[in-house]
Design a binder for these strands. Structure first.
Lengths: 110, 110
DNA sequence: CATATTAATCGCAATATTACGATAAAAGGA
DNA sequence: TCCTTTTATCGTAATATTGCGATTAATATG
């Protein structure tokens, strides 16, 4: 494959891309919605709610953790997953600023 | 690979995932920023601005078109790309609603 | 008409993603 | 201690993504 180093893009661009990549699969969107809606966020509940295997859910949870949007806390044999507040707010603000760029600068060239 | 049909997820989940997938690469974020900032949005200008080859830019533009977020209009030998207003607004609203879910329902279970 | 210019597409390679079942690891309960 | 429960990881396969150079197609321009 080709190069395209991280340095070729701004921090905002790579951050935005990272958060969006986390949300780029419907299963991960569904997981985040569950975490937003529920009081408890045990991994097992997520597995029951999704139409995919436990190992696949675990993989998606790992990716969400790596994106920073969620964190997991071990509680006995189970793991409690939650939204990471500061990262969530950061993502919210980045996306808001990005999408607001349209209202601020309506270019109707085509 | 496994199954995971589209029907397994809600329309909102797949729409959100589709828009976010479009934004999941820094080059595509950069392209969208260019389209937001500039009056003209000729493909060649985008190619000049990005650190990747013309064919690769063309591929990213194709993906952005498929996501619905942009549209292209042929103008002689060149192509003018623009944000698709209605899709952009739809994406903005979907994302806003999604991220607002955190403020509405702060669950601090971990 | 010949030749540039512009953008899309093709062919290819490297790597990443998505998914599964099987297995491992870790803690709890009988 | 043995067994269950719960989650992560491993191994593997199928497919998707990312990137490039080369080529094609379409329109301008001389």
């Amino acid at each position: 494959m080709g190069a395209s180093k991280t340095a070729d893009y701004t921090l905002i661009q790579t951050d935005l891309a990272r958060y969006c990549k986390a949300l780029s699969h419907p299963a991960r969107v569904a997981i985040l919605q569950l975490l937003l809606e529920r009081k408890t966020c045990i991994c097992g509940d997520i597995v029951e709610d999704l139409p995919i295997a436990q190992s696949t859910v675990s993989q998606h949870l790992k990716e969400l953790k790596q994106s920073g949007l969620i964190k997991g806390e071990i509680d006995g044999t189970s793991v409690c997953y939650c939204i990471d507040e500061s990262e969530w707010i950061k993502a919210t603000q980045l996306l808001r600023t990005f999408f607001d760029g349209f209202e601020l600068n309506r270019n109707t060239c085509c």
